[in-house]
Amino acid sequence: MGKLRIGCHLSSGKGFLHMGEDAVKIGANTFQFFTRNPRGSKAKAIDEEDIKKYRAYAKKHDIEKILAHAPYTLNPASADEKVRDFAYMTIKDDLMRMEYLPGNCYNFHPGSYTKATKEEGIDKIIRLLNNVLYKELQTTVLLETMSGKGTEIGRTFEELAEIIEGVRLKEHIGVCLDTCHIYDGGYDIKNHLEDVIQEFDNIVGLDKLKAIHLNDSKNPFSSHKDRHEKLGEGSLGIETFRHIINHPKLQGIPCYLETPNELEGYQEEIAKLKGMWYIS
């Protein structure tokens, strides 16, 4: 059934070639990176020479499929027009830059409706996506599952499905499932993984699941918080991740670690996951 596509979040400060080399060094065959400072700022200028070198290196080492992550500060669901405009301009610019690395995915947090209603927030997200997506786009934009803090949108599969339903170019939209977030959000993937996968398929469709964030949780089930823990050291436990990476319906979906680690820690977790993967 192919190979386990596993990586982690890497710093983009030194460019794509450096990230590719770091990925190979720690045993990864994919990686995630921020398109700019995670707290939001102007992105660095495109370094076409670095991208050229990276693409050659990535092809050689089979790390061509990667995941970009938008800044945390984006809130396309906000009632504040200036906040929505910032989200629109950032995502539009990021998608333009992603065209230098065609065929990959771009992940963002759907946002919070704050002073408005949830339905108004969802409508704003849909409008933004319909404004930034275009037919020739070579990037798939992913909605991340959220834990449900405050007025966050994206805690339930129904909310994600409603957004997708409103998007005109559905072939350019997908979902990134975060294990910490959905467990904190009320989906018991520790004890009822099969049921949760079936529910996702019924409501959203597994064809829309394009990436998985593998994170343990510092908090208990349905806590509606968002604090990642190292694999096996949180409330999900290591066996949950063994079941996830070996589930027949999840094969081929790239997985990304966002655990509180440096490169050495990621290397250990990647090796551990490879050791637990028995489907081949």
Rank of each mutant, 00 (worst) to 15 (best):
G27E: 03
V132R: 06
G111I: 10
V24C: 02
M98F: 12
G150M: 02
G232V: 08
E264N: 04
T240E: 05
Y113Q: 12
F31V: 02
E165C: 08
T140S: 10
Q138E: 15
F86P: 01
V141A: 03
D201H: 14
G15W: 11
R5Q: 11
E119A: 12
S147A: 15
I125S: 01
Y106P: 07
I203D: 04
G166Q: 05
I91R: 00
Y134D: 04
R5H: 08
V204K: 11
S41H: 03
R127H: 13
K44H: 11
I66Q: 00
E21F: 07
A56M: 02
E64G: 09
H192K: 15
D195N: 15
T179L: 08
L10P: 03
S41Q: 07
C176T: 13
I6L: 14
Y54P: 00
V204W: 10
I173S: 08
Y57E: 00
H61R: 01
K135T: 14
K208E: 05
A77I: 13
S217F: 03
D207P: 01
K65P: 00
H18T: 15
D47F: 11
Y183A: 07
G186K: 00
I189G: 02
Y256M: 11
E171Q: 09
A43L: 00
I66T: 05
G121P: 07
S217D: 07
K124D: 13
E144S: 13
